[in-house]
Design a protein around this nucleic acid. Structure first.
Lengths: 333, 333
DNA sequence: CTGAAAGCGCTAACAC
DNA sequence: GTGTTAGCGCTTTCAG
């Protein structure tokens, strides 16, 4: 199939040592005399020997590969997380097998099983949605798992997130201080989700504490046109301040409002809780909660490397700081 | 390391057959009597047996894994290509190892070597930039390679693209027909690149044929702020129509123009040749060449599957159709 | 249709 | 320090 490769055996013969010694040299084992090491190295270079990672994986039971489970690569939110993961993975010499689960041909548990069959050394899961099947699959395996940008209900798995409740509350406060009283929450997924649960809790608490009634929560508003179309409903409900979990959705609401001749932020204030680039390049630019997505990914991957090395982990639930970036879609009085 | 898994041997013993037979069942080989097959299947299910893909890979010399080389995951252009690839890969049961090379810790040839060491069955390369080291690395290996969204200078490798020259010419024509005569080309990478070469050729040809002088080509304008800052230069050069290869750059130019009080498209027309979502959600929306990115990825992956199966390929240089989407950043007279 | 046996290319004790 | 020797878990002839 492949062009015939040079094996460790060829190198051993040529360098007049055993394959064990070649293996030691390749793996940087120090128990090799300098001159034999040099000799082996010379042959490796001359023959262009490259170790077969599959054979290494089978023999050592470590593949130096980690699996990534992601809902949608074209969502900048996950792309930025992935980038953080990727950079740290590179640093620690891990390859990444990426599995996208948005495509409903592949369910979460199948995706996980597929990764496990490939003998990945660890898995990073990112999605707002951590279904029970996934939890079960993760519990069955000894392969370390880290959640990035999400948590499970009982904090059974290590995770790296921000404090979503606190962030949302802060955003609601900004709207409130700007004088807005008809505040809505726009979610991009159903309420079976942990992150979403937290957000709803925070929202309801805020509304109650400020005597703002029970408010309005809109579910399953996922993309630009969902947002664009939601606007008329917001108007019917007299909303004048809105928190949106997905920024392309927020842009949809924004454009719809502008097309309808409204003034943002005067008539309607908008805050997105996922500040990717698009939020800052539209006009008016969107006030946003900036999650440190790259860092979340990077920290998650670093945490995973520790787990894969069986190092002690002091804190398995890591919360990173976020920023509230005040832009033009709020008056910021 | 991993929780002890059930091996093919356990299944064989339990089902009272040889491991060869279990292997046949697992791989859907038809030469197994129905009742033995059923018996084996039952044991597989009962024991929750899952084949170890690494061992399969070593024995069969096929890993059902393909390598993806991508400059930057957070660039929507590549994310959309990747999505097309991913969907088709899933369909054909391939996993994807993704390698990002934007990070300069890892050069193209190292990335390729790393993938090859993992014994991937094929590689898809996407980047405007196909450096000589990469070409050399690809030539040395028997592993099939497909270029997605780019070509090599001598058409040595199969590729899936659009006709960049034609697309750019069409865009220039639109500007010309709108009465613009000071036309510029804004590139996001250096001129050592094939795609870029084609674009420059098309641009120069157009300018010459229409007696527009030698024009202005701006290189290495890569991101939003590059675009934003380029605007003043465009004004100094009296540009009133511009083709931009990267849409976030185009948005930078657009916002800068608007902040300077200009009227787009009256004073300056902008066309981006990479229509990702951001181009259509900014206001004025950008006129754009819509490359069928998802399809390019999908077709590239399909082509790769054929190559991995040693099927005959009739046409190795595939060009897909594109659209010129007229929006608000051109007058379209 | 099924089984025996020889590897795939490498690592990891265990000797020496 | 270095070599010998078992495997890792599976596929794949080759017999029968």
């Amino acid at each position: 199939m492949r062009k015939q490769d040079i094996t460790i055996y060829d190198v051993a013969r040529e360098a007049k040592v055993s394959m064990a010694t070649v293996s030691r040299v390749v793996n940087g084992n120090t128990n090799v005399r300098k001159d034999t090491r040099d000799r082996v190295m010379e042959v490796i270079k001359r023959l262009h020997y490259q170790p077969n990672a599959v054979a290494q994986g089978l023999a050592s039971k470590r593949t130096t590969t980690v699996g990534l489970i992601v809902p949608d690569l074209t969502n900048l939110y996950f792309a930025e997380l992935s980038k953080g993961i990727d950079d740290i993975a590179l640093l620690y010499k891990y390859n990444i097998i990426i599995t996208s689960i948005e495509n409903r041909l592949m369910k979460e548990d199948q995706a996980i099983q597929s990764l496990l069959n490939k003998q990945v050394d660890g898995v990073i899961y990112m999605s707002d949605n951590l279904p029970d099947e996934a939890v079960e699959a993760f519990k069955r395996t000894a392969t370390p798992v880290v959640l990035a940008g999400t948590k499970d209900k009982h904090d059974e798995f290590p995770s790296v997130t921000i404090d979503y409740k606190k962030a949302d509350t802060e955003a609601l406060n900004l709207l409130y201080n700007d004088g807005k009283r008809n505040l809505a929450l726009v979610l991009d997924n159903s309420s079976t989700v942990v992150n979403t649960d937290n957000r709803i809790v925070a929202y309801n608490k805020f509304m109650t504490e400020h005597n703002l009634g029970k408010g309005h929560i809109y579910n399953n508003i996922k993309d630009y046109s969902d947002g664009y179309n939601l606007f008329s409903q917001l108007m019917r409900d007299n909303i004048n301040g809105v928190i949106v979990t997905n920024d392309i959705t927020a842009v949809g609401i924004l454009n719809s409002a502008i097309d309808a001749g409204m003034n943002v932020p005067k008539d309607l204030e908008i805050i997105t809780t996922s500040a990717t680039q698009v939020a800052s390049v539209v006009r008016p630019a969107l006030t946003a909660i900036r999650q440190p997505l790259y860092d979340i990914g990077a920290v998650a991957m670093r945490l995973l490397t520790k787990m894969m090395n069986n190092e002690e982990i002091s804190d398995k639930q890591i919360e990173l700081p976020y920023e509230l970036l005040k832009k033009q879609s709020t008056t910021n009085e």
